Simulated assay, not measured.
Amino acid sequence: MIHSLTAMSKRDELDLRFSLVFKVDEGGILLREFLHAKGISKRTLTATKYDGGDIRVNGIERNVRHLLHSGDEVSIIFPPEEPSPGLLPESGHLTIVYEDEALIIVNKPAGQSTIPSRDHPTGTMANIVAGKFAKERLPATVHVVTRLDKDTSGLICIAKNRHIHHLLSEQMMKFGFHRQYIAFVEGYVEKDQISIVQPIGRKDGSIIERIVREDGQFARTEVEVLHRSEVDGLHLTKIGLILHTGRTHQIRVHMRWVGHPLHGDDLYGGSHGLIGRQALHCAMIGFLHPLTNEKVEFRCDIPLDMKLLTNTEIN
């Protein structure tokens, strides 16, 4: 359970709806204004009122015009959520790195889609997380905060409630999440550190491929060489990357732009000599926890197929 000086979330055995509890430090404020100051949007308050939620002060149901006093305890019980019609709950394996009442961090394997699509309606990470929620009788749906391409492995953040999703999404827009990736690119990257600041946009005539273009969206990627190696005659550079923006295919586009496409990434010029997918892994994700406002970081090691790309170190 997550606790803080100002709020905590809880699910008891009788009521599994997501809830938050706040202590009032200074009185003389309307309940509506107090909740807004705690990040509860007007839309969320409306949904809470009409869709099966509840707002209580010292255990008594109150409307948003109630005047609060110092020492009051305010509880907001969010309405139950239903999975969208296109999200079929399924059973399956999850590698859970962290979980609490607000969110879940999952290590996604390569080859698995994050969310359902027309081509991949089942077997996705979201389908399996929805199945986990259903098994646990949680009245929640899957809110994906960070997603990865189907063939990229690594950490994904999922919120368990639309309010938590809202808080994390706002944080991403204002400050960004701290995300570190590991990749293997083709050729030897000469400089040990590179800062790539190039706008990215959709390639004309394609619904998938992105390119560097002047009218694209601002994108910044920091690159650090970890080591250079030769595997079966192929020159590879293992790099660490930090994303300051989150554009679609940002790492893949930026690395092709500097002449070092990801190994296995045939969409952006890489070859398939040693691995059957782009050699890219999200190894770390960090952000401020939406309830405690404390910095949290989660890490996971690269998978076996990428470890096999480190046979002979050059320097």
Rank of each mutant, 00 (worst) to 15 (best):
V225C: 08
M284A: 10
K191G: 00
S271A: 07
C282V: 12
L243S: 06
G240C: 06
I211R: 04
H227A: 10
T245V: 08
L241I: 09
R252S: 05
H235Q: 15
G273L: 15
T237C: 03
E224A: 13
T245P: 02
I251Q: 05
H178S: 13
V197F: 09
G259E: 11
H254V: 08
H272P: 00
I207T: 13
I194S: 04
V258N: 01
G233F: 02
T237F: 01
T248A: 04
G273S: 13
T248H: 07
D266R: 14
H272E: 10
G240W: 11
I251C: 02
L241Q: 02
I196S: 04
D265R: 08
Q198C: 09
V212M: 08
H244N: 11
S195M: 09
L243G: 03
Y188T: 09
Y268C: 03
V189K: 01
G201D: 10
H227E: 14
R179F: 00
G246S: 13
V212I: 15
Y181W: 02
H244P: 00
G233N: 01
Q278C: 02
G187P: 06
V223L: 15
G269C: 05
G187Y: 12
R252C: 07
T248L: 01
H281L: 13
G276L: 14
M255N: 06
H249N: 08
V231N: 15
R220W: 12
M255C: 06
Q193S: 13
V185C: 14
S271M: 10
I207M: 05
F218M: 11
E190K: 14
I196M: 07
M255Y: 04
G276I: 10
T237D: 03
R213Q: 14
D266H: 09
R247A: 07
I242H: 14
L267Y: 03
E190C: 08
W257K: 01
F218N: 10
I200P: 01
E214M: 10
T237L: 03
R228S: 06
G259R: 11
G187Q: 11
I196F: 11
R247Y: 06
I239K: 07
E222Y: 14
I275T: 01
G216A: 12
A283H: 06
G233H: 04
R179T: 04
V225P: 04
F177P: 04
R277K: 13
M284R: 15
Q217T: 00
A219V: 03
G216L: 09
I251A: 09
I251F: 05
T245C: 01
D215H: 06
Y268P: 00
I207A: 11
S271V: 06
Q250H: 12
E224L: 13
A283P: 00
I200K: 00
E190Y: 12
T221H: 14
L234D: 10
D265A: 09
